[in-house]
Protein backbone atom coordinates (compact mmCIF):
# COMPACT_ATOMS: atom_id res chain seq x y z
CA UNK A 1 0.00 0.00 0.00
CA UNK A 2 1.39 3.42 -0.91
CA UNK A 3 1.46 6.32 1.54
CA UNK A 4 -0.46 8.67 -0.75
CA UNK A 5 -3.89 7.16 -0.11
CA UNK A 6 -3.68 7.08 3.71
CA UNK A 7 -2.21 10.59 3.79
CA UNK A 8 -4.96 11.95 1.56
CA UNK A 9 -7.58 10.20 3.66
CA UNK A 10 -6.03 11.56 6.86
CA UNK A 11 -5.75 15.12 5.55
CA UNK A 12 -9.29 15.11 4.16
CA UNK A 13 -10.83 13.63 7.29
CA UNK A 14 -9.00 15.94 9.70
CA UNK A 15 -9.84 19.00 7.63
CA UNK A 16 -13.48 17.92 7.43
CA UNK A 17 -13.60 17.52 11.21
CA UNK A 18 -12.53 21.14 11.60
CA UNK A 19 -14.83 22.50 8.89
CA UNK A 20 -18.03 20.54 9.52
CA UNK A 21 -18.81 22.05 12.96
CA UNK A 22 -19.09 25.38 11.12
CA UNK A 23 -21.80 24.05 8.80
CA UNK A 24 -25.36 24.57 10.10
CA UNK A 25 -26.88 21.55 8.34
CA UNK A 26 -28.21 18.34 9.92
CA UNK A 27 -26.07 16.19 7.61
CA UNK A 28 -22.91 17.84 8.97
CA UNK A 29 -23.11 15.72 12.14
CA UNK A 30 -23.31 12.47 10.16
CA UNK A 31 -20.40 13.49 7.94
CA UNK A 32 -18.40 14.44 11.03
CA UNK A 33 -18.95 10.94 12.44
CA UNK A 34 -17.87 9.30 9.18
CA UNK A 35 -14.75 11.49 8.95
CA UNK A 36 -13.75 10.85 12.56
CA UNK A 37 -13.81 7.08 11.99
CA UNK A 38 -11.70 7.27 8.83
CA UNK A 39 -8.75 8.74 10.73
CA UNK A 40 -7.76 5.54 12.62
CA UNK A 41 -7.96 3.52 9.40
CA UNK A 42 -5.80 6.08 7.60
CA UNK A 43 -3.23 6.00 10.40
CA UNK A 44 -3.03 2.21 10.36
CA UNK A 45 -2.59 2.33 6.59
CA UNK A 46 0.16 4.93 6.99
CA UNK A 47 1.85 2.98 9.79
CA UNK A 48 2.03 -0.26 7.84
CA UNK A 49 3.09 1.09 4.45
CA UNK A 50 4.98 -0.32 2.66
CA UNK A 51 3.41 -3.63 3.66
CA UNK A 52 4.74 -6.99 2.60
CA UNK A 53 1.23 -8.44 2.33
CA UNK A 54 -0.79 -5.55 0.90
CA UNK A 55 -3.92 -7.56 0.09
CA UNK A 56 -4.19 -9.01 3.57
CA UNK A 57 -3.58 -5.59 5.07
CA UNK A 58 -6.15 -3.96 2.81
CA UNK A 59 -8.72 -6.60 3.77
CA UNK A 60 -8.06 -6.02 7.49
CA UNK A 61 -8.18 -2.27 7.11
CA UNK A 62 -11.29 -2.15 4.98
CA UNK A 63 -12.99 -4.68 7.26
CA UNK A 64 -12.22 -2.73 10.44
CA UNK A 65 -13.17 0.57 8.90
CA UNK A 66 -16.40 -0.83 7.47
CA UNK A 67 -17.38 -2.29 10.86
CA UNK A 68 -16.77 1.03 12.63
CA UNK A 69 -18.64 3.06 10.00
CA UNK A 70 -21.54 0.59 9.87
CA UNK A 71 -21.81 0.58 13.67
CA UNK A 72 -21.81 4.37 13.84
CA UNK A 73 -24.41 4.77 11.11
CA UNK A 74 -26.59 2.08 12.71
CA UNK A 75 -26.38 3.97 16.00
CA UNK A 76 -27.35 7.24 14.38
CA UNK A 77 -30.24 5.52 12.61
CA UNK A 78 -31.47 3.71 15.72
CA UNK A 79 -31.26 6.88 17.81
CA UNK A 80 -33.63 8.55 15.41
CA UNK A 81 -36.24 5.81 16.06
CA UNK A 82 -38.28 5.36 19.23
CA UNK A 83 -35.92 4.32 22.05
CA UNK A 84 -38.46 2.04 23.77
CA UNK A 85 -39.28 0.12 20.65
CA UNK A 86 -36.45 -2.40 20.77
CA UNK A 87 -35.34 -3.61 24.20
CA UNK A 88 -33.26 -6.73 24.74
CA UNK A 89 -32.15 -7.86 28.22
CA UNK A 90 -33.09 -4.48 29.63
CA UNK A 91 -31.05 -2.37 27.22
CA UNK A 92 -32.06 -0.73 23.94
CA UNK A 93 -30.85 -2.40 20.76
CA UNK A 94 -28.68 0.65 20.06
CA UNK A 95 -26.69 0.01 23.25
CA UNK A 96 -26.00 -3.58 22.22
CA UNK A 97 -24.94 -2.35 18.77
CA UNK A 98 -22.61 0.12 20.45
CA UNK A 99 -20.96 -2.57 22.59
CA UNK A 100 -20.74 -5.19 19.87
CA UNK A 101 -19.97 -3.22 16.72
CA UNK A 102 -17.97 -0.27 18.06
CA UNK A 103 -16.20 -2.18 20.84
CA UNK A 104 -15.89 -5.94 20.53
CA UNK A 105 -15.85 -6.46 16.74
CA UNK A 106 -12.97 -4.00 16.10
CA UNK A 107 -11.10 -5.52 19.06
CA UNK A 108 -11.18 -8.99 17.52
CA UNK A 109 -10.55 -7.77 13.98
CA UNK A 110 -7.60 -5.51 14.76
CA UNK A 111 -5.87 -7.75 17.32
CA UNK A 112 -6.15 -10.82 15.11
CA UNK A 113 -5.23 -8.75 12.05
CA UNK A 114 -2.14 -7.35 13.75
CA UNK A 115 -0.89 -10.77 14.88
CA UNK A 116 -1.68 -12.27 11.47
CA UNK A 117 0.11 -9.54 9.53
CA UNK A 118 3.04 -9.17 11.94
CA UNK A 119 5.99 -10.05 9.82
CA UNK A 120 8.38 -11.88 12.11
CA UNK A 121 10.84 -12.20 9.23
CA UNK A 122 11.34 -8.43 9.20
CA UNK A 123 12.54 -8.69 12.80
CA UNK A 124 14.56 -11.89 12.58
CA UNK A 125 18.06 -12.21 13.99
CA UNK A 126 19.66 -10.90 10.78
CA UNK A 127 17.53 -7.78 10.75
CA UNK A 128 18.18 -7.06 14.41
CA UNK A 129 21.89 -7.51 13.74
CA UNK A 130 21.58 -4.97 10.93
CA UNK A 131 20.11 -2.56 13.45
CA UNK A 132 22.95 -3.14 15.89
CA UNK A 133 25.52 -2.64 13.13
CA UNK A 134 23.78 0.61 12.24
CA UNK A 135 24.00 1.67 15.88
CA UNK A 136 27.73 0.92 16.00
CA UNK A 137 28.28 2.81 12.75
CA UNK A 138 26.37 5.81 14.07
CA UNK A 139 28.50 5.86 17.24
CA UNK A 140 31.67 5.93 15.17
Amino acid sequence: MKRGLPLALLAGSAAAMIGLPLVPHPAAGWLFVIASLLVPAALIGLGTAPARRPRALAATLIGSCAVLEAGALALLGLSASSPRSMIWHGLPLSSWVMFAVLGLAPLVLTCVGFAWLFDVRSLDADQLERLRRARRAARR
Partner: peptide, 10 residues
Protein backbone atom coordinates in the same frame (compact mmCIF):
# COMPACT_ATOMS: atom_id res chain seq x y z
CA UNK B 1 -11.48 -2.01 20.59
CA UNK B 2 -8.89 -0.65 18.16
CA UNK B 3 -6.39 1.47 20.10
CA UNK B 4 -4.09 -1.38 21.14
CA UNK B 5 -3.49 -2.51 17.56
CA UNK B 6 -3.39 1.09 16.31
CA UNK B 7 -0.65 1.85 18.85
CA UNK B 8 1.48 -1.10 17.77
CA UNK B 9 0.86 -0.65 14.06
CA UNK B 10 1.64 3.05 14.01
Amino acid sequence: GFTAALLCWT
